[in-house]
Design a protein around this nucleic acid. Structure first.
Lengths: 315, 315
DNA sequence: CTGTTAGCGCATTCAT
DNA sequence: ATGAATGCGCTAACAG
């Protein structure tokens, strides 16, 4: 008990004894076992579980930073896992997080919108905030991006520049976010009385496949004059392809790109670029704040959905 | 006991009973308490503590991804914290990690090489791998980058291009990595019989300050013809400054940049660029592998230091 | 100020 | 195949 008391503040232990206890602890490398401590105190673990779809994407680095920041302010730590868009990996992570008694979850749902979260096992037992994508059948706090509005604005800007034949780069069957952006894209075309040529829909996810798609598209018959890119990975590919195209065909009009998400240095590239951007770090911070509000009990019982604004910039 | 047995595999429990148990568990949202489990089994937690200096930097996103990958393969999860180069935050994290009985640590030491790790409290009690930077007085497995060799190679390439007046962008007093790269930079100049003009040493850390420094430098008397940039953040700033300079002074020779660390899209920028790069994801994976080797007991008792190779590319 | 008792949730061991 | 007793490391509550 004297040791226990000393290690947890030292109330009611003689200072000199405390010194001896600490010295011995240092010597022996003793540290109180938090697992046992938590067991006994029936205390929350101070852990937040975070699952993202691609840790290697700078976007999610910023996102994680936003969460970490707010978590640290609230004395919590984050357990982070990468789902690689793989629902089974997501399930593993969720099970593990739950078993570790995390206090809450911030999840970027993997896959096509029917993630394992929909089964409702984990989600009912602890506070959950969904980020970036909603999941069918899951009623929980959610932080979305104004995908539709942003896509409408970006596409409209493209149209106003005179583009009427615009290709779309994104995996609308696999990724809900891409689907919503496609919606906005389409309704902007509609609003201007333009149709979308289905042959200009490229189902790509990463930079390489986007590069191939754009290169192929520009090399084909009746190529588009602009590309709508759904995320920063596909934008990188599109930029490279357009860059190559410009180098190989000097004098020709340079195809324009409308990119959802910003890419560092893209503004210097001399490619007509419309960026529909938002701040992933702010998104992460917002998700974390919603989670902590709920943990603190001062959130309404109804799930809240917040939509992060999207701004359009031209380069 | 029947529940316990069922939840941990179901040996010696009648199948029909197992079904009922699982049903009830689902219904109630019951999940075995890992803390209690670990306490009883005196089992390791399956957690790895990771501390990086800047989670928002894409470099560390890749680094974390490399760790996560290997950790997942080994059935471990990662607890990640951001130190913001702040030693006191590092200490907090380390204490917390230790208290949570993480099985091992992968740390990018914060600050100037005399991190709190030097005090030896935490480090003696569990396996530790230092990444990117070494710490004075700490003998542990370490994964470094060939900073000196890479800097020599990059600087030499610059000199061979005819540059004799090269500025240096990096915080050599605050960041050990920058110091080592400065060493290589200097010895390459020496080897070619060139001196370094101390007035061309800019102690910058982030993109903005690097941009200011380069802009100022190019606007001054006797400006350098090239810049050595110590990391991807300072490189982004330098690229922007050089870009602006070229736009404002067409016809003038464009200053060259030698960048330690690659930056996405920089190769398209039409700025003479020498990149000394390595793969942060591989570095993370390597650090994780060393940690798990040690945990498995099949590592030599002597601490090992591995140096990741640096390749030089020209754009 | 310090020690004793009891119990957190779980699993090993030994009964039945 | 199931249950009872016991103890993991810790601390609240109660002695003294």
């Amino acid at each position: 008990m004297t040791v226990s008391r000393t290690m947890s503040g030292g109330r009611n232990v003689r200072p000199e004894v405390q010194v001896r206890v600490r010295a011995a602890a240092d010597q022996l490398g003793y540290r109180p076992n938090q697992s046992a401590r938590n067991t006994r105190l029936r205390r929350p673990t101070g852990l937040i579980g975070v699952a993202v779809t691609n840790l290697g994407n700078p976007y999610y680095g910023q996102f994680a930073l936003g969460i970490e920041d707010v978590a640290a302010q609230n004395g919590r730590h984050i357990l982070i896992g990468n789902t690689r868009e793989d629902p089974s990996r997501e399930r593993e992570l969720l099970d593990d997080f739950a078993g570790r008694q995390v206090e809450g979850l911030i999840i970027v749902p993997a896959g096509n919108g029917l993630s394992v979260l929909g089964e409702g096992q984990v989600t009912s037992s602890m506070p959950l905030v969904l980020a970036t994508r909603a999941v069918q059948g899951v009623r929980s706090d959610t932080v979305l991006v104004d995908d539709v509005g942003g896509a409408v604005a970006g596409t409209t800007a493209l149209i106003d520049d005179g583009h009427s034949r615009v290709a779309f780069l994104g995996d609308i069957s696999g990724i809900p976010t891409a689907r919503r952006r496609f919606e906005g894209f389409n309704s902007a075309l509609d609003a201007r009385g333009l149709g979308f040529d289905e042959s200009l829909l490229y189902s790509v996810r990463d930079a390489d496949s986007a590069l191939q798609a754009v290169a192929g598209s520009l090399g084909g018959h009746n190529p588009p004059t602009a590309f709508f890119s759904t995320n920063n990975r596909t934008t990188v590919g599109a930029l490279r392809a357009v860059w190559n195209h410009r180098r190989n065909h000097p004098g020709l009009e340079v195809p324009a790109i409308a990119s959802f998400d910003d890419v560092e240095l893209a503004d210097l590239l001399d490619v007509p670029l419309t960026v529909m951007s938002h701040d992933p770090r702010a998104l992460g911070a917002q998700a974390a704040r919603m989670l902590f509000e709920r943990l603190a009990g001062d959130a309404p019982s109804e799930p809240r959905t917040i939509s992060m604004p999207v701004t359009v910039q031209r380069y």
